[in-house]
């Protein structure tokens, strides 16, 4: 069962709470599904609706909502950056879910720019104990470049092919001005932070939080082999850190067969490792 909820100081943020089905296995935990770029809370190709319902079927609550200025949530004129505002609104959501339903621990899931939001929110919010980041930050490594060169030598035509389009750009209006601009959301808002800073933050968070990183073949311009994540940060698989690579899937999971696998893997990881 799903409920529409409004939250925030003026109830201007709109979200959908998906109740866990009968066997409420983990009464303390709720899963948050964050906006992917400018797509509203249903998600690209309804991915977020399907994921929330799947998670609820395993006995865990899920909440998906729109940041201010996205989807059904009203825009706010604020001097805060989008990065500051998204973290602040995620905090509003966890406060609301605790007050309203009693949840004290949260698992945040984000795709593309939503993965960046998960990273920032986990740093700022102690109640977010685990995160799933799909096509999050990616930094090229020496092995990445070697693989790229070897591919180009094999297929010369790839030299002239632009292989990657960033989701944030895909969902912006762009041509005649857009709500993104109106609400101070940079449509190309995937600024890549300094790698050393990201690595340091990850190592800090891994002391007491659990993380699943997923990368797709759709990110091939930045990420082109399975273990690149570990090479980027000098990390390795631990009970708190897991990596899944889907070379066949595209960045927005347009095919149902890829969405099914992704839903299954995220749900299994949450059930077995995050809680």
């Amino acid at each position: 069962m799903e409920r529409i909820v409004t939250l925030g100081n003026d109830a201007s943020l709109v979200g959908i709470f998906t109740e866990p089905q009968a066997d409420h296995a983990k009464p303390d935990y709720c899963v948050l599904i964050l906006n992917a770029g400018m797509v509203h809370k249903a998600g690209p190709f309804r991915t977020h609706v399907q994921l929330a319902r799947h998670i609820a079927s395993t006995g865990m609550a899920a909440f998906r909502f729109d940041y201010s200025g996205i989807g059904d949530s009203d825009g706010k004129k604020s001097t805060d950056s989008f990065e500051q505002r998204s973290v602040s609104e995620i905090n509003m959501a966890t406060d609301f879910l605790q007050q309203q339903f009693g949840y004290t621990k949260f698992i945040a899931i984000g795709f593309c720019s939503g993965a960046d939001d998960v990273h920032r929110a986990m740093l700022a919010n102690n109640q977010i104990v685990a995160g799933v980041m799909v096509d999050g930050y990616a930094y090229k490594t020496a092995r990445y470049h070697l693989k790229k060169i070897s591919e180009k030598l094999r297929t010369p035509s790839s030299w002239i092919r632009a292989p990657f389009r960033i989701l944030a750009g895909l969902f912006s209006g762009g041509k005649t001005g857009s709500p993104a601009e109106e609400f101070d959301i940079n449509p190309n808002f995937r600024d890549l932070p300094d790698k050393g800073k990201t690595a340091s933050e990850l190592k800090t968070m891994l002391r007491n939080k659990k993380m699943l990183f997923i990368y797709t073949g759709g990110l091939q311009a930045l990420y082109n082999y399975e273990s690149q994540f570990y090479d980027m940060y000098g990390l390795r698989k631990t009970p708190s850190l897991e990596l899944i690579y889907y070379p066949e899937a595209d960045h927005t999971f347009i095919l149902e067969k890829h969405r099914q696998i992704m839903r299954r893997d995220i749900s299994n990881w949450i059930t077995k490792h995050a809680v």
Binding site: A162, G218, P247, H251, I254
Partner: peptide
């Protein structure tokens, strides 16, 4: 679309449905 997929995709047949 090679910009979208890094591997070749096929049009899967689904019983009773079209994707």
């Amino acid at each position: 679309d090679n910009d979208r997929f890094s591997t070749q995709q096929t049009h899967d047949k689904n019983d009773g449905h079209v994707e």
